[in-house]
């Protein structure tokens, strides 16, 4: 079935499947992302959620913010649990033991649950070709346990386990693991990146990922006010600047064909993005330049325009 694209915000369903009353922090971008992914999925879905902020804030017994069937098993095996669910639905439908309709399987996991502890299970599930949508909510650290670095933490970010010090002045000394590229290399039919400041782009990518036969991977950049040391009201602006500076590359790869879906006509210097966030406050000018060079090289590879002349 061809994907029905939402052309404007007005077409996005009003129904909330991730309901108010959840206990996410003020300004939580994950919550925004989840609301919209679920709007794309609709009622006929089963959600598998890795351990993490989302799981914790949404289900303190006896409260649940989920209006759709939802399962939390553990941290590292979201994709494996989804494999079982998808396989079971397939065979039970074949044997006419459940209603004969498509039920989507959607995974939500953080960057730790995807880049680190859940990496193997996800790689296995993608290789096996299960029909499911895996959503990585990337807030670039282990926020649920109190802001520890993951392999998705960017170079130069302060976290409680990558603190800047005399020997390691930049804080996080390694570059962010490029998850979308890694999962695209599995040859799955759909890989995309998105962020909350471009909601239509996000929701349409979720929809495409759900509609495609086989595995889909959607990587969503979700700024975290306490973890990134930003005021809650600035979350969308930080997300937007992430795109405008080229820190977040927003694209989709359908059957290996890569296309930027949000392409800023002029690219802003990364310093604008970095200076909004307390987690980068310690960075030296050299560090900022280093990040700029890294981003420039990446943007060139992806066909983004060069950095705009400084104004």
């Amino acid at each position: 079935m061809a994907s029905q694209t939402f052309r404007s915000i007005k077409e996005v369903p009003l129904e909330e499947y991730f309901t108010p009353g959840h206990r996410a922090c003020q300004g939580c971008a994950e919550a925004i992302a989840v609301r919209h992914v679920l709007k794309a999925a609709g009622r006929d879905v089963i959600v598998v959620n890795a351990t993490g902020c989302l799981e914790v804030v949404s289900t303190p017994y006896p409260y649940t913010a989920w209006a759709v069937p939802w399962y939390h098993v553990a941290f590292e095996n979201t994709a494996a649990v989804a494999s079982g669910i998808e396989s079971a639905l397939k065979v039970l439908r074949r044997k006419r033991l459940v209603a004969d309709k498509k039920i989507h399987v959607v995974c939500f996991a953080g960057d730790g649950g995807t880049a680190d502890i859940g990496f193997q299970a996800l790689s296995g599930a993608l290789e096996r070709g299960h029909d499911f949508l895996y959503v990585c909510l990337d807030n670039e650290a282990y926020m649920n346990t109190g802001i520890q670095r993951s392999s998705s933490t960017p170079y130069g970010a302060w976290t409680t386990t990558s603190p800047p010090g005399k020997v390691k002045p930049a804080g996080q000394m390694t570059y962010k693991k490029d998850l979308p590229s890694i999962f695209a290399a599995h040859g799955i039919p759909y890989v995309a990146t998105a962020t909350v400041s471009y909601p239509l782009d996000l929701i349409n990518k979720a929809k495409k990922g759900l509609d495609v036969e086989g595995p889909a991977y959607l990587h969503i950049y979700t700024p975290c006010p306490p973890g990134w040391r930003i005021p809650s009201e600035k979350v969308i602006q930080v997300s937007r600047l992430g795109v405008q500076t080229g820190m977040f590359l927003i694209y989709e790869a359908e059957k290996g064909h890569l296309r930027l879906t949000v392409k800023p006509s002029r690219r802003k210097p990364v310093a604008e993005y970095l200076k909004m966030q307390g987690r980068f406050r310690h960075l030296s000018d050299e560090d900022v330049e280093k990040i700029q060079r890294f981003v420039d090289e990446r943007c060139a590879k992806f066909g983004l325009p060069p950095l705009e002349a400084s104004t």
Binding site: T19, P20, G21, H22, R23, S58, T59, Y61, P62, Y63, T64, A65, W66, A67, V68
Partner: peptide, 15 residues
């Protein structure tokens, strides 16, 4: 197993 059978019961919680 502590399953919550009321979907969206968080709506009862005042944030």
């Amino acid at each position: 197993a502590g399953i919550i059978f009321t979907p969206g019961s968080a709506k009862e919680y005042n944030t």
